[in-house]
Amino acid sequence: MADNTLESYALQNLVKHYKVADEVQHTAMSDIENVYKILKMLKPQTWLPVGTESRRRLYPRAVEARPLDEIDLRIDTTNMLGGEVVCFTGKSDYPRNTMQEIAIKNSAEISNSITKKTTMLVVGLDAGSKLDKAQEKGISIISDRDFMQMLNLVGKDISA
């Protein structure tokens, strides 16, 4: 087994890989301590049910933006983003669907990927490959904070 790969997620392999104990005793208490040390180190954000069969069930579909006539955010409808096709990527202080609905309320079209029609990419933390694609295509890139500032929404309660 290479130092940076795991043969399996068996506890003895995890303990060895993350160097949390010299040996695995497989007593109830030592197993709990080892699992605790590993979880404390990894700090998982997502907890998946044991025996889940498909990826689709592991990661539920993202909440999608609603059509303009159903959006109940407390912001005015404007034409500030008229003609823009906006894509969002990365982690933001606001949920993705809320950011998309803000764009829709300001007359933008939404794209979930970088295409030849995309005119603006709004990036949060950990932007990933969409950022690379947008840079290659010369698409306008703006931070999520600048996006909110441009629309005069920073610090405002926009929830319904």
Rank of each mutant, 00 (worst) to 15 (best):
I110S: 00
I141T: 13
E136D: 15
L81F: 00
A127W: 01
I142E: 14
A2I: 03
T52G: 03
M150T: 12
V154C: 03
S129V: 08
P44V: 05
N79L: 05
M99F: 09
E33L: 05
E23N: 05
D157N: 13
E33H: 05
A134Q: 03
K91M: 06
Y36R: 08
K156P: 03
L11D: 08
E109G: 01
I102Y: 01
S107M: 12
S140E: 12
H26W: 10
Y9H: 11
M41N: 08
I142H: 07
A65W: 07
L81V: 02
K130D: 08
I71D: 10
S140P: 00
T115W: 07
H17G: 02
I141A: 14
S129W: 05
T89L: 04
S113A: 11
K137E: 15
E101F: 12
D144E: 14
L11K: 06
V15Q: 08
D3N: 10
K40I: 03
S30E: 15
D126K: 07
S92Y: 11
L81G: 01
T77I: 13
A62S: 12
K40C: 10
A65K: 09
A21L: 04
K19Y: 00
K40N: 14
L42E: 04
Y18L: 10
M150P: 00
K116E: 15
T77R: 11
F88L: 13
S30L: 08
E70F: 06
Q25T: 14
G128Q: 03
K156E: 11
W47T: 14
Y36W: 02
P44Q: 06
V63F: 05
I110L: 11
P49Y: 03
I102L: 03
I158M: 07
V24D: 11
S113P: 00
T98F: 04
H17Y: 15
E53R: 14
Q45R: 10
E84T: 06
K133P: 02
G51Y: 05
D76Y: 02
V50N: 08
D157P: 00
I102R: 03
V154H: 01
A21H: 07
V35T: 11
M120I: 08
T77D: 02
D72L: 13
L73N: 10
L42T: 00
A2V: 06
D22T: 04
V20G: 04
K156Y: 07
V20M: 02
L81P: 01
I139T: 08
N4H: 14
S113Y: 04
D3G: 05
D126T: 00
I114L: 03
K91G: 03
H26T: 12
D93P: 05
T98H: 01
M80Q: 13
S8M: 06
K37Y: 06
L58D: 05
S129L: 09
P49F: 06
G83I: 11
I114P: 01
G124P: 02
A62G: 08
V15H: 03
N97T: 09
C87N: 12
M148G: 01
D72G: 09
R55Q: 02
S129F: 08
I142C: 13
A160C: 01
I110E: 05
N152L: 09
G90L: 01
N97D: 09
I104E: 06
A62D: 13
I104M: 07
M41Y: 11
D93N: 14
E136N: 15
L42M: 04
D93C: 06
T52L: 12
S113I: 05
D144L: 04
